[in-house]
Design a protein around this nucleic acid. Structure first.
Lengths: 338, 338
DNA sequence: ACTCCATGTGGAAACGTTTCCACGTCTCTT
DNA sequence: AAGAGACGTGGAAACGTTTCCACATGGAGT
């Protein structure tokens, strides 16, 4: 490792001068600057960010805590964040919590020990107190929930999304609807469930025989597949399913194909997220769009605003609108009247 | 930030003793140990990895340089690497090069400045000299190519994979076959192309009228879609397409649906990677399996071996076998004889 | 009674930077 | 002619650890 001292020696100046050249601060003479620049190039010198971080207290590093990069939605979020971060000179540490609370806490400890300047947490199942405790003063942006006013967050109105999805199923004539929810504790899953329940109970008077059922899922493809199989093999099978994310919805789609059930005519399916997969499945999946990449970019921007503003806890909320994307999995030949 | 000094003071001992307790090294008395442990808990103390790294020269950090996490194959690789890394106490820095060589170099400079202990590069388009130059002594594992003997690498026999795919298309009766290759410079894309060309030229004598054509792609869905459209609209359209990855293959699938061309009967399609998407598309995609997660785990293991072995450049190669996965996109009613 | 070694502890240097302070020299103003 | 800047430079402290060294104290072996 070549250090600033080597550069100083080679250029025949002091380390102070080299530092000034690197940071373009203070006064440096023309000749000195040239010699330092030359020496840096010759030695292929890169100042150590460790040392720099130690003295400045800033590491230009952020932590990204998500359940799973292999989940396309979070991969999009991650990409959005990393792109925005590197553009501002920040480096991103990747942390996959695998939906486990204890892993979240573990990663947060690691991030603190590495002096991350801030953290973005997406898809956490932990409560706010736990997060508060574990982040302990670390600047923070949450991406899946409406945080309290004192915290920055990027979120969607998941309840509205859940309402859109459920209403749509009712509109096309479904009367026995099942909602496969997300893991317990996930605020987005909770919102979607609320929306579902709300619409079902509001419409029960209007459409007699309308029934809504709830099954707890895990946001994973395999989980959706299994639940789909057991659900579709029962006598009293549903004619509409709203899955809390696309991955599970696609799992159900496969289960339906396996059971020889026609989608959308015998069974209509709505997902959530609008990941690429939902467009290319067969039939293509009606879903609620959630712009992962844009939400990621936005989350980093909020974090940056917080970092810039020093002590005075500049906190902001950014909301994204859920949007119903109509595709094959609910495109019935004849629709029931509204 | 609470420091080791605060802990020492609270426990009434020297920083040396605290350090010994933290690292469980040297002699520490029973009472002193207890008091230090207690003080650490009370202060919620986490030793600074920056300071530690500065003195030890080791940061327990690795860099992960991939083209794009939003590409499901690389997301799998990333997940495999991160899982393996955290299990050994290493932290992963995420770098998306977006297939651009200059971004690779930029990221490598950043990683060096952060004193990453090692780097894993997947899907790079840069030549070995460029990589050598940019990594400059950083322990390194390449994941998509058979490195020279002096370098650790994880790879697949892409040429064999290309041969499998192309032979399969010929076997089911395709005679005008197009290969959509990957971006220029990518070794995996190159291997697949070689395999394609080899099989085509070897079979030209046997099957008269057999034609193979090459089109340069970019490993992206949209690219595949566009190429598919222009290809399928021409009079002289192919009856078989081998795409260098699944993303492009699915793009072509969509293009075929758009043009009203029957898959697999009018057009057979083979992809590469076996990402989740390939199973859920319609028709499902015949492809060459590439186990991203396992390759990621493996890559980290090789890196770890290198890190442990000090100066003596312990380098290993790990090879994975390509496997043909038969699915709907090539399942023709009647197959031509071999 | 002596040395020897295991045990326990702390001071201080080192890691590679940034930054505060001090000390020059030159030029311009009055 | 003298003082006030502006300009240019370097020494050294500081950041939070680890680790080398020195120095105690005690008991066991001769």
């Amino acid at each position: 490792m070549t250090t600033i001292k080597d550069v100083a020696q080679r250029a025949g100046v002091s380390v102070t001068t080299v530092s000034r050249v690197i940071n373009d601060s203070g006064y440096v003479g023309e000749t000195a600057r040239e010699r330092v620049t030359k020496a840096m190039e010759e030695l292929n010198f890169q100042p150590s960010r460790l040392a720099r971080g130690l003295v400045s207290g800033k590491t230009s590093t952020i932590g990204l805590l998500i359940p799973d990069v292999a989940n396309p939605f979070f991969a999009d979020v991650a990409r959005g964040i990393e792109d925005a971060a590197i553009a501002k000179g920040y480096t991103t540490i990747l942390c996959n919590s695998d939906w486990k609370r204890e892993r979240e806490v573990m990663y947060l400890d690691i991030l603190r020990s590495r002096w991350a300047d801030g953290v973005i947490i997406a898809g956490s199942r932990s409560g706010e107190e736990v997060i508060d405790q574990a982040t302990a003063g670390l600047p923070l942006v949450l991406v899946d929930r409406r945080g309290s006013a004192k915290r920055s967050s990027v979120w969607m109105d998941n309840e509205r999304g859940g309402r859109l999805a459920t209403s749509h199923l009712i509109n096309i004539g479904c009367r026995r609807i099942v909602h496969i929810s997300g893991p317990e504790g996930s605020p987005s899953a909770y919102g979607r469930k609320l929306g579902f329940e709300g619409v079902i109970s509001e419409n029960r008077a209007r459409y007699e025989g309308l029934r809504g059922e709830l099954i707890q899922g895990d946001f994973r493809y395999e989980g959706g597949h299994e639940i789909g199989l057991s659900l579709l093999r029962s006598k009293d099978r549903p004619d509409g399913i709203f899955a809390a994310n696309d991955l599970m919805a696609v799992g159900i789609l496969q289960a339906a194909r396996f059971c020889g059930i026609e989608v959308p005519d015998e069974l209509a399916i709505v997902g959530y997220d609008n990941i690429a997969l939902s467009e290319y499945s067969f039939p293509s999946l009606t879903t609620i769009a959630q712009p992962g990449y844009a939400m990621g970019r936005s989350a980093f921007q909020l974090l940056l605003n917080q970092l810039g503003s020093g002590r005075n806890h500049h906190s902001e909320q950014q909301e994204f609108e859920p949007k119903l994307i109509l595709r094959g999995s609910t495109a019935r030949k004849q629709q029931a009247g509204t």
